[in-house]
Design a protein around this nucleic acid. Structure first.
Lengths: 351, 351
DNA sequence: AAAGCTTTCCAAAGCGCTTTGGCTGCCGCA
DNA sequence: TGCGGCAGCCAAAGCGCTTTGGAAAGCTTT
């Protein structure tokens, strides 16, 4: 059933039916209702291709997906993608992926921009002075950055969470509980969000007259394995930290394994706070010791980005709009008062 | 630059130019060359939307991507997707993802089929008597299954690797090296590829008059963690296996960690063979003990599936074509002769 | 040399939608 | 009574491509 047939059934012109369906003002309310009814009854679905041809929009949002050597396949990616998809599928949008290996990334972007097959693009995991942002800014293609990037001489539209505030609050909580040796297991070098988190934590410490010693902060790809390693190293020290803040649940899992191996316990020997991007397959409240987290659903962010991209395509949103989402600190069983003292005995006790 | 403009520049009709570009026969070779030249020179790119409207094809291949509770985010997924994308981007195809949570999966499929927005679909990780295959078969939508599914009363097009042969060969190699206690760390219940692998291994053992005892085979989601756990359990046994075959590199990593923790060594105490789907970020030849693998690049499979889907859309390929790729057994340092005997001492030696 | 093929090209009709530029009544106003 | 204004509708012109149904020109055949 197409527009023409539908309009004939209604004894209306295609123009009117089209306008009724798309919410244009110059159509009587009563008519609009009739049209909407009929459309539903006959199961009318406008053809995307026709619409795209007529409007000149591709109806797609694009993402350049790096794959290849040295690319850490990110668990966040799919979850975020799902959020985008949630919005996309209900709004006549499609999500087109352009895989690329890291070497070709710039070429892939340029091709994407030139080929005019997508209406908007989003950029994830921006690094400092990310060249992709500059490229997009110059191209005129609507885009949104998920996260922030520093070191540009222009503003750009982004959606980010308040990483600094989140880790500030997390650290402050631990300080209030009497912890003074707090370590940070952070994301990789160059990732803006990791910089922000570290900054937030340092500020909280500074407010208590403390600093974050180098040996208490490590940067890493956020895997279980790396979390385990870093925790083993940290906890083997004679003046080991009494609390840990980490940047992802994967790291938290590794940390908990390390803690178990060493015969320590959470929160008695170590308080632990993790950032949680809210994965459906991993719930910190279900851990054997429920985990305190700074929490921000990444899927919702994906959905919001899709929504804003749609707005930018429609020119409803313009300019370098920045959006920073607050992050909740959810206190659960994994934090407790700082232990009085670390006994020698415990330090060497085996698994 | 569109077709009309290009055809004017060439003093040809749109028809001829279109045909020349699309390889139709009724155009002189010389003309075709002129057209191709001009097209390149002016950077002409046909508009996908227009083409789609005219041909009635959506120009997209679809994938229903499960996300949500209990979905194990699969590392294979992105790599496979990349393969699809490699083909897609050079062939006027786009890859459209429809995320869904597991509960809605069937509804999502039905919507996808009804909405007519994709020309073909692929199905991954089929289970026994997979309902998705039946649904697609009945819908008339072109599709290909990546893997196989048993228990259907009809044939269907698929691309699979020779899992049975691969694990047969792997087991045979170990048997030839004198191993008699060989354990299998397999994928999850219900996954056809895992069934096939187990079958192959059993056949090889049977040919040597051996069987695979229940305690030597475990099914699991193929993660590092699960590999570690299973290996710890197996290797703690007094009559522990002298060789292990596992279904993914992730498991292999876990196994190697377990072996290290127990103070054992590969291949002296344990021979290890893993299946390798060839991830760019994980190379078994680079392991401290290079790993023997059964090897089949999953990205190439993605590419091939895209190619075949394109053929099915064009009706070049029809019918229940099945394609089974051979799997290479690549012998590296992680296999050796079976140890003479397992000493008591070793069995209890700590990390 | 006329008839019949081939080869090579073209004009024009869609594909299904959006959007421009009217056209019709009907109301209110002077 | 006449006229401008407005709400509500329509016809038709695209959007850029593919494809149908010729048609002209060149060759072969009888």
């Amino acid at each position: 059933m197409n527009l023409k047939q539908l309009s004939e059934k209604l004894s209306l012109s295609q123009t009117t039916v089209s306008r009724a369906l798309n919410g244009y003002p110059e159509v009587a309310e009563e008519t609009r209702r009739r049209v909407a009814d009929a459309a539903k009854r006959f199961g009318y679905r406008p053809s995307p291709s026709a619409r795209r041809l007529a409007t000149g929009k591709a109806g797609m949002i694009g993402y350049v997906m790096p794959t290849g050597d040295a690319v850490h396949i990110d668990t966040h990616f799919i979850e975020f993608l799902s959020g985008i998809g949630d919005y996309a599928r209900t709004h006549e949008l499609d999500l087109a992926l352009s895989p690329t290996n890291l070497d070709d990334e710039e070429a892939t972007y340029r091709r994407l921009l030139a080929a005019h097959r997508v209406d908007a693009v989003y950029v994830s995991s921006p690094t400092t002075a990310d060249w992709r942002i500059r490229l997009l800014e110059e191209s005129g293609m609507p885009y949104i950055v998920h996260g922030r990037s520093e070191g540009h001489d222009f503003e750009f539209p982004f959606l980010d969470i308040d990483n600094e505030g989140a880790f500030h609050d997390a650290a402050r909580l631990l300080l209030q509980l009497g912890h003074e040796r707090i370590a940070l297991l952070n994301g990789n070098e160059g990732q803006t969000f990791a910089d922000h988190r570290e900054r937030g934590m340092r500020k909280a410490l500074a407010a208590h007259g403390l600093i974050l010693p180098d040996r208490f902060v490590s940067r890493m790809t956020m895997t279980e394995e790396n979390g385990y390693r870093a925790a083993r190293r940290l906890l083997a020290d004679s003046d080991r930290p009494t609390a840990l803040i980490c940047a992802s649940l994967m790291q938290a899992l590794g940390i908990m394994r390390a803690v178990g191996d060493l015969g320590l316990s959470i929160p008695d020997d170590l308080s632990l706070i993790s950032h949680d991007d809210v994965f459906p397959f991993l719930k910190p409240e279900g851990f054997s010791t429920p985990l305190t987290t700074t929490c921000s659903p990444i899927r919702a962010a994906g959905e919001r980005i899709a929504e804003r991209l749609a707005a930018r395509i429609a020119q409803t949103e313009t300019g370098p709009v920045g959006e920073v989402w607050p992050v909740d600190l959810i206190v659960r069983g994994s934090v407790g008062r700082a232990p009085r003292k670390v006994t020698k005995q415990r330090l060497v006790s085996p698994a």
